[in-house]
Nucleic acid binder design. Sequence first.
DNA 1: AGCTACTCCTGGTAGC
DNA 2: TGCTACCAGGAGTAGC
Length: 301
Amino acid sequence: MSAHALNALVERHTEVMPELPEVETVVRQIAPGVVGRTIAALDVRWARTLGDGARARVERAVVGRRIGAARRRAKWIVLDLDGGGALLVHLRMTGRLTVRATDAATDPYLRVALHLSGGARLDFDDVRKFGRVVWCPDPASVLGDLGPEPLDPAFTPADLHAALSGRRRLLKPLLLDQTVVAGLGNIYVDESLHAAGLHPLARSERLTLPEATRLHGAVRAILERAIACQGSSFDTFYRTPRGEAGQYQDEFQVYDRGGEPCRTCGATIERLVVGQRGTHVCPACQPKPRRSPRPRAARRT
DNA sequence: AGCTACTCCTGGTAGC
DNA sequence: TGCTACCAGGAGTAGC
């Protein structure tokens, strides 16, 4: 790769709260810089990013291997290596992947770097160290438990209805469960529930097919729009000195808007905590479930 | 089965 | 100004 071409990739990272649209954006941006390249060396600055005690094993497994493909599954970035196995990257809260030139300065929060052939380097920077870079000889061992991709054309409203109504849980925690639907996080769940007119405290077993159909449409429309915006960027503690920031945060209807007026009806957005997560709801657009949120368990039969 | 609490982390910020 | 205490949060786990 020429210096000019590499420069085009350098610093082209997106600063995000990474959920499906942000991870999709990251994969699209790094793929041209990593696919087809061979891993020449591993630079580990924070060993736990690879998993406790995994460093030597990972190094033996990946050095000298060629990255055949870069793809997304749920919130995982999957780097498939020729001959089998994959490096799986999870950004969690603050992780970032950036393709830089081999000799570029490193970020103070660099945790793991892959030195690649052709003068490139894939940096995994992560302020809070929650992110992970995992070597999987068999990626299905990690990815196999994930639920359906919401944007998969084969994923229907009836599938969503079955997945939700077949469990007895609050709607929001269930939607955050990656084994039910894969890729949603706090932001897009709040936005989707608002768009569908559903309350996060609603009981999943009471969800009707028409409601599930609304939710299915909302999830898809919001994710597609957010991908088109290259995700959502935050400046609560991120700065955006360079590179592209996502734009979807400008279109939030409820997320991070507690106390502000609903853009649909003008009611004041409420902030509550559901399952230990900050949750944002319009009390008018998303009426509270009429029954108690925690109905008494059925008596023995 | 599903709920809550706790863990991992650190920069930012509210309160003094 | 400078200090401390607390907060955010994806996902895994433990305990009830």
